[in-house]
Simulated scan of single mutants.
Amino acid sequence: MHTSLVKEQDIRQPILWFYTPMSLPIAADVEPSLVVYDCMDELSAFRGAPPMLRERERELFARADLVFTGGQSIYEAKRAHHRSVHAFPSSVDAAHFALAREATTDPADQRDIQRPRLGFFGVIDERLDVELVARVADERPDFQLVMLGPVVKIDPATLPQRQNIHWLGQKSYQDLPAYLGGWDVAIMPFALNEATRFISPTKTLEYLAAGKPVVSTAIRDVVTPYGDKEAVHIADASSFVAAVEAALAQPTEARLAIADAMVSATSWDKTWRSMSKLMADALQAKRSAAVRTEGNVPCSTI
């Protein structure tokens, strides 16, 4: 949002919603009715993060009325920095990903890949444990690893190349259920490093909504609650293949019952209703405080 746009469109006291502290200068001259900092991750831990990001975040904490976090871990990391921090773990478009359960036709670039298929979709960057991907492929040459997503911040030449690893590139959101429908296990082979310390992967619920068994490394916001409730198999590098084998052998009916219970407990609509209430309450509190302040202005004695 540029100040010129605000003036041209006669926008008065907008709600400012920040996804990154680096956007602060853009709205420096805007007078908002409310400021929300939607903190989805610890961006300062990402490769190539701007050096001034932490300082900008301190400025944003000082300006924000509300802070929303994308998961429990990042909530615990941020709650000491602001008076009103609220955890909102990612939800899921359940109906969209449930289409995978009925998918009967493979996308063209997946059609000729043999089974069993282990699938992943997401950004392929420093958060992905590429050595683990290679290890799984080497330990089980019969497993076919289908990897979807753009390669960002890492050299594509460093990705392990095997006959049973298929780097298929970025796919549209609309096409994901069709790919998921042809997988036998959905995997989250994340590295355990600074960039993944606070992540709460949206794909966890998307995989479960698709009805797929899921295997993940020990990302904290996956272990609790998904691992604790046996919705996701948790493994390290040495046990990942065994966890995939266990996922493949798990009775479908029992697995789907657990997955459906977790998926049905959340929705983006529910998340937005909760956020909206917090915002309405914060706006009302600010208006009430302004009225009290105006009422306390001393009258002129002249």
Results as ranks from 00 to 15, higher is better:
H2V: 09
T3D: 12
S4N: 09
Y19M: 04
M22N: 09
M22Q: 14
S23E: 05
A27M: 09
A28W: 08
S33I: 04
L34R: 08
V35C: 09
S44L: 10
A45P: 11
R58V: 10
E59Y: 11
R63L: 15
G70N: 10
Y75F: 15
H82N: 07
S84K: 13
V85I: 06
L99N: 10
Q110L: 15
R115M: 13
V123K: 10
R127H: 04
E131F: 04
V136A: 04
A137W: 02
E139F: 04
R140D: 12
R140K: 14
D142T: 08
L148V: 07
V152I: 12
S172I: 01
Y173G: 02
G181Y: 00
D184N: 14
P189S: 05
F190A: 05
F190W: 02
A195M: 03
F198R: 05
K203P: 01
V214E: 02
A218H: 08
V222A: 00
T224C: 07
A231Y: 03
V232G: 06
H233A: 12
A242E: 14
V244S: 06
V244D: 11
E253Y: 01
D260T: 11
A265M: 00
S267F: 09
W268L: 05
K277G: 10
L278C: 11
V291T: 12
T293M: 09
P298N: 07
I302T: 12
